Amino acid sequence: MDTATIRKYFESGDLMKFYKSREWMKLRLVALRRDNYECQMCKDEGRYHKAENVHHVKEVKDRPDLALDIDNLLCLCIKCHNLVHKRERIKREPKFWIEEKW
């Protein structure tokens, strides 16, 4: 997959085509194996957590030429990946709340 194709996916708002591509899936697996399926941020802090995400250090929207570069990938757990992207966890209210106490 070339840079122009990746850029086209991003500009059309269909970046999931990239993330479902054979090239990405293979490279993602290589990155996970390289990092022993461990979150690298947790590992740097002396903790262990399984890596569920493969993060682009330099974002695909900014650097589509590095989208398939193994040196631009970092394996992270979901919590650390959300932290890197400054996403906050949404606190949900329970679906059912019964005021009555037995």
Rank of each mutant, 00 (worst) to 15 (best):
D2N: 15
I6N: 01
I6D: 00
R7P: 04
R7G: 06
K8H: 15
Y9F: 14
F10E: 07
E11S: 15
E11M: 15
E11L: 15
K17Q: 10
F18C: 05
Y19F: 15
Y19W: 12
K20D: 11
S21V: 06
S21L: 08
E23V: 11
W24T: 06
R28P: 00
V30T: 09
A31L: 00
A31D: 01
L32M: 11
R34H: 07
N36H: 11
Y37Q: 03
E38H: 09
M41N: 09
D44H: 12
E45S: 13
E45W: 10
E45I: 10
G46Q: 11
G46M: 11
K50Y: 14
E52H: 10
E52R: 07
E52N: 09
N53I: 10
V54H: 00
H56I: 07
H56C: 07
K58D: 03
K58P: 01
K58G: 00
E59Q: 12
V60W: 01
V60H: 00
V60T: 05
D62T: 08
D65T: 07
D65L: 04
A67G: 08
L68Y: 03
L68I: 10
D69T: 11
I70S: 03
N72T: 05
N72E: 05
L73N: 01
L73S: 02
K79F: 03
K79D: 08
H81I: 05
H81S: 06
N82I: 02
L83N: 10
V84N: 03
K86I: 09
R87I: 03
E88N: 15
E88T: 14
I90M: 13
R92M: 12
E93L: 15
P94D: 15
K95W: 12
F96R: 13
F96M: 09
W97D: 14
W97M: 13
I98S: 11
I98Q: 13
E99V: 12
E99N: 15
E100M: 09
